[in-house]
Simulated scan of single mutants.
Amino acid sequence: MSTVSVSFAIIVFACGTYTLRVSGVLLRARVALSARATASLDRSIVCLLVTVALTSMLFDGNDFGGIARVIGVSVAAIAAWFKAPLVAVVIVAASVTALLRLSGIA
């Protein structure tokens, strides 16, 4: 792929993202969703975020990411569950993963 085609793709995706965000703001007052539809959308957002997180946690390209990464992300999830600040969650996850890798657990 050339630099021009990558730049063009980035611009197209940026414009699409901006259009979706603006349309949400503009249509919010005109379109009324039922409580069931709103709850369904909220659940679908959570499901999407969880699947992206799990995929990133488990795989590094086409290969397994390693047990240290899985344990580090799991510890971060537990810290986030207990409402730790974001900086603390990131530091805890990085520290646990680094210590496990230093001890020989890949």
Rank of each mutant, 00 (worst) to 15 (best):
A29G: 02
L49M: 14
I91L: 15
F82N: 08
V31K: 11
I71H: 04
L48E: 01
S34Q: 02
M57F: 07
L41S: 07
I78K: 03
A35C: 06
V87T: 11
G72W: 08
I91Q: 02
F64R: 06
A53F: 05
V70H: 08
L27N: 15
A29F: 00
A29P: 01
G66Q: 01
A35V: 03
I45W: 11
F59K: 09
V25D: 06
S56G: 15
L33W: 09
L54S: 11
A29S: 12
L26S: 01
L48C: 12
A77L: 15
R36P: 01
I71T: 05
G66D: 03
S40K: 04
V73M: 13
R30L: 11
L33N: 06
A39D: 14
D60I: 11
A76D: 00
A29R: 15
W81L: 13
L58F: 15
D63E: 04
A79M: 13
L41K: 02
V25T: 14
I78D: 00
L58D: 05
M57N: 06
A29Y: 00
A76R: 03
A37M: 10
A37W: 08
I45S: 10
I71M: 05
A35K: 10
L33A: 13
G72Y: 08
L27C: 10
L49Q: 04
V70S: 03
A93T: 14
F59C: 05
T38F: 11
C47F: 10
V46I: 15
L86D: 13
A29T: 10
R36C: 04
R36V: 09
L26G: 00
A76T: 04
T38S: 14
R28N: 14
V31G: 04
F59L: 14
S40V: 05
L58A: 09
P85R: 11
A76G: 15
I45E: 12
S56A: 07
W81P: 00
G72V: 06
L41N: 04
S23K: 11
R36Y: 07
N62V: 09
L41T: 02
L41C: 06
L26R: 06
L54R: 01
L48T: 12
V50S: 09
A68W: 07
A32F: 07
C47T: 13
M57H: 05
A80L: 14
V89M: 04
A32I: 03
L58Q: 02
W81Y: 12
R69L: 12
R43K: 10
G66V: 06
I91E: 03
K83L: 06
